[in-house]
């Protein structure tokens, strides 16, 4: 038993090194001035980080645009899903299967394919969906359906929605009052987890924004693309690390929330 455990530790340590190494190298590279030998040149060199924070307005503008591009679809998706799931839990439990099937479709109809099919259907037709921004918002709202569905569904069932609403009705609360004052506050963690997971998915996307937005809409990812196109220097590395830090901090918050949520539900 002891011996096999030692083997397991070796596996984990090797795996950790393999997974940390690329990230660590990029981080070290961003603090250097080139890396052609065993050791990087002029380490540590904070010049590129200084530029990133104080001289690169376009980068921060793009990050801002990325954030807007994340928030609007998340709101659309959450609103649609909350209304639908609430109605279903309350009145039409038999429809749950349909909503689940639809919500899992983006797993098969992934990024590029979905973007292409929407583009060929609506582009240049002059409808409201032909507007590239509307299209982008709606594509993202659909792409994140799996996260939103899973987060909200678990939560709605975990808080015994039906009993709560019935109890509130007995006590004389109106439907809307119950919904906004009791149901929604109880779902906040579920909403937050879905939103943060979706945020990560949209923020890291490049293929859809490239296909639908073309060159018109620049996000943090398109910025990274042009940076890499112009060269593989340490400057590019600093931008990559910065974007990664943003994504990873969002991810950490969502994992923590999720853990707390799971604990609450198992109580």
């Amino acid at each position: 038993m002891k011996k096999s455990n030692a083997l397991h530790y070796v596996v984990l340590i090797v795996a950790t090194i393999i997974f940390i190494a690329p990230l660590l190298f990029v981080l070290i590279y961003s603090f250097s001035n080139g890396w052609m030998n065993l050791l990087p040149n002029e380490f540590p060199n904070t010049q590129f980080w200084h530029e990133l924070f104080f001289e690169s307005e376009t980068f921060w503008e793009n990050v801002g645009r990325s954030i807007i591009l994340c928030i609007v679809p998340i709101i659309i998706s959450l609103l649609c899903m909350i209304l639908a799931m609430y109605t279903i839990v309350m009145h039409f439990p038999q429809l749950d299967g349909i909503v689940q099937t639809i919500s899992m479709l983006p797993y098969t109809l992934r990024g590029v394919v979905l973007a292409i099919s929407i583009l060929t259907l609506y582009a240049g037709k002059g409808t409201i969906f032909s507007d590239r921004i509307v299209m982008l918002f709606c594509v993202y709202a659909v792409i994140i359906l799996p996260f939103v569905y899973r987060g909200l569904r678990n939560n709605l069932y975990a808080i015994n929605t039906k009993q709560i609403v019935e109890a509130a009705e007995l006590l004389g609360a109106s439907g809307l009052y119950t919904f906004f004052r009791i149901i929604v506050p109880n779902m906040l963690t579920g909403i937050a987890v879905s939103a943060l997971l979706s945020f990560g998915a949209i923020f890291t996307d490049y293929s859809i924004v490239k296909l639908i937005g073309g060159n018109r809409f620049e996000t943090a990812q398109t910025f990274l693309y042009y940076q890499q196109k112009s060269g593989y220097g340490p400057k590019t590395a600093s931008y990559i690390i910065m974007v990664f830090i943003i994504i990873f901090s969002i991810a950490i918050i969502s994992y923590q929330l999720q853990k707390r949520n799971d604990k609450d539900q198992s109580k």
Binding site: L23, Q221, Q228, Y232, A237
Partner: peptide, 13 residues
């Protein structure tokens, strides 16, 4: 979360 641009960059590096 490191997939995509960061990953290809790291491999090139």
């Amino acid at each position: 979360n490191f997939a995509g641009f960061p990953l290809s960059f790291a491999f090139i590096l």
